[in-house]
Design a binder for these strands. Structure first.
Lengths: 300, 300
DNA sequence: TGGACGCGATAGCCATAACCTATCGGACGC
DNA sequence: GCGTCCGATAGGTTATGGCTATCGCGTCCA
């Protein structure tokens, strides 16, 4: 039984004439006759009574044709659904974002995408890089915005931008008035860091050339905002990325001071599975991120 | 788009593995791959993401496969419906019967068919032969029980039985005690007949060798029962077929008297369109009619 | 790090079935 | 009777779907 055959019987049922039905199906009359004969044989029922006074539907034919119409209708909906899914910029994009980027990038990114891809809502998964990698490879998310390096096998990345690191000190701290600070000046004992697992923690440690002694466990905050508050309360100082230091996140009790040149940075990228079919959706997200008015350096 | 292709994508969606899906569909893996590629091309959407870590459904694929399942389900119902229509003795049979047979044959016929074809209800159309012919040829009824001759083009007939005609006279009529009556004795002036259009009217007239003068218009009854009542009331006498003269229809005020040999009869048959696909349903009706305990002569 | 393995895609060949044109055969109608 | 209409049949061609063998890529393991 084929969809073709079902189309044929519906056509004959409507035309009550093999010749005209064949014409309507753009086939020759013998082809249509043979196809219908095939179907009748397969179903084991005569669907039409070929009489002198035209073609009549048998009782079984009536019911089969009715059901055939339903099948064809559902089949048409397959095409409609496919058509609606043809636009890569339509449909939910499941996007992972690491916690040190999400709160600073997403508000503007979402806003930008409402213009660039209005039919593509973002389903955001905020998680650590290692978890995002697993989710990405398992297909639970479609793409992830995170910091490089990221070399999960079977994935590709597109660099979005670089952002500087800055030292954040209490407003009354002697460094608050400095123009810049050398990396070597940082004291591991007073540096507040994110917990293990956050890539930003390692990036800061890398930038500082790894301290000999590990920071004390107590000197940690679970988010960048917590770190900022801890600095404001005078517990120590920390390092934050530039996107966390815009006017929107200003705090009168703390002051951000750049590093000496060359200033340490992190490179932010979007990653996806090799072969992910909605590459242009990923690209749209990337373009939107690059176009934002944030303290970022267009890179790559 | 074919049902085959839809089966393939559903299978791959369930197995998440081209090889196993192919096995389940009893085709080789390349065949299945090619078919799916075809469908994806036709729909203009990638349905699956062929990754290293197995096969993933795209968002569009998810929706298309869901709809494909619905199509296949409806297609299965086509086969079910066809199967249920495969038994010619199942399903309504639309049967025409002429008014001079219907009330005498149907009660017993229906009863007999409840045993022989319990899944075949009869949709009865009681009408004159000419109308039944039109209905039969138009396909509005499937078969008709009527009196021969019946030579509508495109139809075939099967003789069911013969039934005698008898003279029906008032119980007090001098003929009521006669053993038999010669045709020539009938007086057209006192003979009660059905209206024009009933074949039985013509059969009686034929049997009597056509009277020179037509019967008076007033001496008509619209049914055999009306004729019987008119005889009972003393209005005249009439001729009825044997099936109308069983104990069930006995009337104390009238008496039926046979004709002299050779007794006139009418031949009752069942007719259907040549090529009507449920021939065995017609045959079943014929067998049932022949097997009835009625004053009929198995004929043909 | 190299080789075996797993998996989907590709290449090339073959059989079948789907389609075409031409023709037949029965039924009607003039 | 003869022409016409209509579905079925015959015969030939194409292309579609299926197969085997193989490739290419990635992963896993020694």
């Amino acid at each position: 039984m084929t969809l073709q055959e079902l189309k044929y019987i519906v056509s004959v049922a409507e035309e009550k004439h093999f010749g005209r039905a064949a014409e309507r199906c753009f086939v020759s009359q013998p082809s249509l006759s043979a196809a219908i004969r095939n179907l009748e044989d397969e179903l084991g029922v005569k669907l039409f009574e070929r009489g002198k006074t035209g073609v009549l539907l048998t009782d079984a034919g009536e019911r089969v044709v009715g059901q055939a119409r339903r099948v064809l209708q559902e089949a048409d909906r397959v095409k409609l659904i496919a058509k609606s899914g043809r636009n890569p910029l339509a449909g939910v994009l499941r996007l992972g974002v690491i916690p040190t980027i999400a709160p600073y990038l997403l508000p503007d990114l979402v806003q930008a995408l409402r213009g660039a891809a209005p039919q593509m809502p973002l389903d955001i998964e905020e998680n650590l890089t290692a978890n995002l990698e697993a989710l990405l490879r398992a297909g639970s998310i479609d793409a992830a915005i995170l910091a490089l390096p990221f070399d999960a096998p079977g994935t590709e990345t597109l660099t979005l931008y670089d952002e500087e690191f800055q030292v954040v000190v209490p407003a009354k701290h002697p460094w608050a008035k400095r123009k810049s600070i050398a990396i070597g000046e940082l004291d591991p004992a007073s540096l507040l860091l994110l917990p293990v697992g956050h890539c930003f923690r390692n990036q800061v440690l890398d930038a500082c050339g790894e301290f000999a002694s590990a920071p004390a466990p107590g000197r940690q905050g679970n988010s960048l905002e917590t770190l900022r508050s801890m600095v404001a309360s005078g517990l120590g100082l920390t390092v934050l990325p530039a996107t966390a230091l815009t006017a929107r996140h200003a705090q009168s009790l703390v002051k951000a001071v750049p590093f000496d040149e060359p200033r340490p940075i992190r490179r932010v990228a979007i990653a996806w599975r090799s072969g992910f079919p909605r590459l242009s959706a990923v690209r749209a997200v990337g373009e939107a991120a690059r176009g934002l008015k944030l303290p970022i350096v267009p890179a790559g």
